[in-house]
């Protein structure tokens, strides 16, 4: 049977891994290739790299990163961060990225999802959705690093992304991100049970229990976290062993 996946996420700025709390206060967390190798050895199932650099050099740096990664690790990896055209997707896939995550650009121009899926296959297109609770049992989609409320309903947008050909949803709760107090189980379960494609839970993974809960209560197909892995609170292996103890099938 299919194992649930544990995915370390690396935020990249100017070629270095950084981690912030609630999208503010960035701290240096190391060299991306070194960390990728470390997680690879710990049996990470996939890796996600999100670039938050906002300079002209960005594109070249990302392509170089994808190309180096593809030569050094033999597990799937996703690259995202400000990607807004099929041409950029093409360049990164050619360099060796297995999947491309698109976020704000997909909200602005949903056709990008269909174009990407048509040209590179649905499996290649991960739609990243950042959500915040707006009360009344509703969640909205936020863009621009969680600063802009698009007014879009989170569940409706996830369904549209799926209909347009997304292969997977990377769902991040802005309310929980960085706090390490657990994933937003309510919205994760809502979206995961309404969609046919896999959903990755992100934002809030902290305690060992929180990862199991993301799968058991949040119904996520995969769980993603950054800080707990970067700062060595837990290894990927430790998280997986705990999940296994809770009756979840993982690759060990």
């Amino acid at each position: 049977m299919l194992a649930k996946r544990v995915i370390p996420c690396l935020d990249i700025k100017a070629g270095r891994v950084v981690k912030g709390v609630n999208f503010l206060g960035l701290k240096d967390a190391g060299d991306p290739i070194e960390l990728a190798k470390k997680y690879n050895d710990q049996k990470a199932d996939e890796l996600v790299f999100l670039d938050i650099t906002a300079t002209n050099e960005k594109r070249k740096t990302l392509i170089e990163l994808a190309s180096r990664l593809a030569r050094e690790i033999f597990i799937p990896f996703t690259i995202g961060g400000g990607i807004s055209s099929a041409e950029e997707i093409h360049d990164l896939v050619t360099a060796g990225a297995d999947k491309i995550s698109i976020n704000s650009a997909a909200v602005k121009r949903p056709e990008l999802i269909s174009e990407g899926a048509r040209q590179f296959g649905a499996q290649c297109i991960v739609v990243a959705i950042d959500v915040k609770s707006v009360g009344g049992g509703k969640w909205h989609v936020f863009t621009h690093a969680g600063q802009k409320d698009t007014g879009l309903d989170a569940v409706e947008w996830a369904l549209e992304a799926e209909a347009r050909g997304a292969g997977e949803i990377l769902l991040t709760s802005m309310d929980c991100d960085g706090a390490q107090k657990g994933f937003d189980l309510v919205i994760t379960a809502q979206i995961s049970s309404q969609l046919k494609i896999p959903v990755i839970a992100s934002g809030g993974g902290g305690t060992l229990e929180s990862f199991s809960e993301g799968v058991l209560k949040g119904k996520a197909d995969a769980v993603l976290a950054a800080s707990v892995f970067h700062y060595g609170t837990f290894s990927v292996n430790q998280v997986k062993r705990h999940m296994q103890k809770d009756g979840i099938l993982v690759r060990l």
Binding site: L2, A3, D45, P76, Q123, I197, P198, A222
Partner: peptide, 29 residues
């Protein structure tokens, strides 16, 4: 969920040089 995406185990029905040295408890993506 479809696509079937992630790590799963392959059960060998026949012996084959392709599987040489690969454990029963294997994982493939």
């Amino acid at each position: 969920k479809v696509p079937h995406m992630g790590w799963n185990r392959v059960e060998f029905h026949q012996e084959d040089p392709l599987f040489e040295g690969i454990a029963k408890e294997n994982w493939f993506y």
